[in-house]
């Protein structure tokens, strides 16, 4: 497990210990751990000399700063209009069936969390999904399943 204190130290070296360093710290922790637990939020609040409530307030505002446990790979399928018209429902169903989860859930092996999200900015190439930071545009159900299988085989 990544040492959160170490991440905080690394980020504050670049951004300082002021409040403006908060987003970069939260983002760095999520990037490595995939979500923030209560203890992380408390450590961050101490490092920046903020109240834990302030840190929780900021973290809970942002969709990408997860404060509930997430799988190793977070899948976000775009559900906004252009992707809707291009068939995002089919993609979501295919992923749900492949991973045996419903949207919002994490697979039993904790490898994947499936979420739907608002516009990802690929309206001309929908349907589209993000897996962590990586983009997969112009999906078909078959393509989506193949991509997941590649992730399954990793590590």
């Amino acid at each position: 497990m990544a040492d959160v204190q170490q991440i905080i130290n690394d980020v504050t070296k670049v951004y300082g210990k002021e409040r403006k360093a908060l987003m970069p710290i939260l983002q760095a922790v999520v990037k490595i751990k995939n979500y923030l637990d209560d203890q992380d939020l408390i450590s961050i609040s101490k490092a920046l000399d903020l109240s834990a409530a302030e840190v929780f307030g900021t973290a809970s505002f942002y969709t990408f700063l997860d404060i509930v446990p997430r799988g190793k790979n977070v899948i976000r399928v775009c559900k906004t209009i252009s992707c809707h018209m291009a068939g995002k429902d089919e993609i979501i169903h295919a992923i749900e069936n492949t991973l045996n989860v419903k949207t919002g859930e994490t697979s039993v092996d904790k490898k994947f969390t499936l979420l739907s999200t608002n516009c990802l900015g690929w309206c001309h190439k929908g349907p589209v999904m993000l897996i962590n930071d990586k983009v997969f545009p112009e999906l078909t159900a078959a393509k989506a399943i193949e991509i997941l299988q590649n992730y399954q085989e990793e590590e």
Binding site: E18, R19, K20, M23, P24, Y62, L65, N118
Partner: peptide, 25 residues
């Protein structure tokens, strides 16, 4: 600097709030 998935942060003053480490209000 990066955002974290909030549409409202495209509003200029919400963007400043976000960069200052606050909720994007």
């Amino acid at each position: 600097r990066s955002g974290s998935g909030a549409y409202i942060c495209g509003e200029e003053s919400a963007l400043f709030e976000s960069m200052e480490g606050k909720r994007g209000e």
